[in-house]
């Protein structure tokens, strides 16, 4: 893979971070390579935003090393070359889109032109509107424009498509692809496997503050392509867990739940072993289950 040979632009190494007694990151290693779109994937609360905040210098590193362009993440020379879209609740409601863009452009030595930013974020018709009067999706687009204001080499997008409708989401995806074509590097956090699949060259999966998988989207998907079988049965979870392909089996309420990579084998066995088995469903495993499978793999 070409990205694998590219130099590292930013990295976290053996980073551990605590909020009081709560362990948010535990010995996390993360590498961002030049020119790639790196997907940082994980369920809510996995530690994605903490990792991004450390790379942005908005959190102080407690243990381990964070480095961007070979410098400390908060260094002035780093801030000039990087842009970020964060999960924040808003910017000044009383300023117009154009005013916000003008202000952020002023922060950088060689910014994109205002008209280019408006076009990139699809905001041409909204330039004179006050931020407070925009819809949620339009506000997200303003944040995207502000992240791009300085023509950054390295772009951090923290859950950029939260709150966007399907059209707006696909439009943003296209913009991110176009940025990649122009040689820029993007770090994208998401809890949406499809989004990582659509955009990322490489995916790092974080769960409970640890990196539990890393690879191309295809590799990650193949490892999480499990099915979840649910049924009411007298067969014990332990017995099911020892069947071929079963990653995890547990009791939830009256139901047995089994996560498996070979659903046909599992269902055949279950039906043979328990003629009274009832209420059987088999569904594609959700991301939560996929993470469970990955966690299971690594322990």
């Amino acid at each position: 893979m070409q990205a694998a040979r590219s130099p590292t632009l930013a990295s976290l190494s053996r980073v551990t971070h605590r909020y009081g007694p709560v362990l948010a990151l535990e010995g996390l290693d993360l590498e961002v390579r030049r020119g790639e779109v790196l997907g940082v994937l994980g369920p809510n609360g996995a530690g994605k935003t903490t990792a991004i905040s450390l790379l942005l210098g908005s959190l102080q590193v407690q243990e381990g090393v964070a480095s961007v362009f070979g410098s400390a993440p908060g260094a002035a020379e780093v801030r000039v070359r990087r842009g970020a879209m964060l999960q924040i609740s808003g910017i000044s409601a009383n300023l117009t889109v154009r005013e916000h863009i003008e202000l952020f452009r002023a922060y950088y030595p060689a910014p994109f032109s205002a008209s280019r930013l408006l076009a990139l974020a699809g905001l041409e018709d909204l330039a004179r509107r006050r931020y407070g009067k925009l819809s949620g999706g339009q506000k997200q687009r303003v944040m995207f424009a502000l992240a791009l204001a300085g023509d950054p080499e390295l772009l951090f997008l923290d859950e950029p498509t939260t709150g966007l409708d399907v059209d707006a989401r696909h439009r943003l995806w296209n913009e991110i692809r176009a940025l990649r074509e122009s040689g820029r590097t993007t770090v994208l956090t998401t809890h949406n496997l499809d989004e990582a699949d659509a955009l990322a060259d490489r995916v790092v999966v974080i769960h409970n503050g640890r990196r539990i998988a890393e690879g191309t989207p295809a590799e990650i998907k193949s490892r999480t392509a499990g099915r979840l079988a649910r049924c009411v049965t007298r067969i014990a979870p332990d017995a099911v867990a020892s069947l071929p392909g079963v990653v995890e089996a547990r009791t939830r309420g009256q139901h047995l739940e089994a996560l498996t990579t070979q659903p046909e084998v599992l269902v055949r066995e279950l039906l043979v072993r328990d003629e009274a088995l009832a209420d059987l469903t088999v569904v594609a495993a959700g991301l939560e289950e996929a993470f469970l499978a990955l966690t299971r793999d690594t322990t």
């Binding site: 942005l56 842009g83 808003g90 951090f156």
Partner: peptide, 13 residues
């Protein structure tokens, strides 16, 4: 609270 400061902190402002 809203995060404006957090965002500006990531810029060269």
């Amino acid at each position: 609270d809203t995060g404006v400061l957090l965002l500006k902190q990531t810029t060269p402002m």
